[in-house]
Each structure stands twice: as C-alpha cells, then as structure tokens.
C-alpha cells in the first residue's frame, strides 16, 4: 500500500465545540499513533424500577 500525505498551508478562523467526550481527541498538530476505545453500556436490566436496592459491593 502506498500512502502519500501532502500538507499545504492551513489557517482556520474559528473552531467551536460543545463537547469532547468518552475517549475522543481534538488535535491541532500531528500524531504518529492514535488508538481510542470506549465501552458504553445501558442494557434493559440497568433500568431498575421498584424498591431501592443499593448496588452490590462485589
């Protein structure tokens, strides 16, 4: 595989971001390696309706 990158001049006026979250990256510059992983879990059984039970300790 041949991979060619040509970076010409870059001038950005304004960047507006509300949120960068859950292992995300906002980078102005160069990077060699980026590896981002995120697990988000909201299964049906995580919705507990009923009497209050504290979360288990183990």
């Amino acid at each position: 595989m041949n991979f060619t990158v040509i970076n010409n001049g870059l001038h950005v006026g304004m960047v507006r971001i509300i949120g960068v979250s859950s292992s995300s990256v906002f980078l102005i510059g160069d990077a060699d390696k980026i590896s981002l992983s995120s697990i988000f879990d909201t299964p049906p059984e995580s919705l507990i309706i009923g009497p209050f039970v504290p979360l288990s300790l183990d």
């Binding site: 292992s23 990077a31 060699d32 590896s35 995120s38």
Partner: peptide, 10 residues
C-alpha cells in the same frame, strides 16, 4: 503527539 491511547468504560 507521538502516541495517544485512551480508554473509557461507562
């Protein structure tokens, strides 16, 4: 950056 390696578990 040389290396970025992030992890989030929610």
């Amino acid at each position: 950056a040389e290396e970025i390696c992030a992890e989030a578990r929610i």
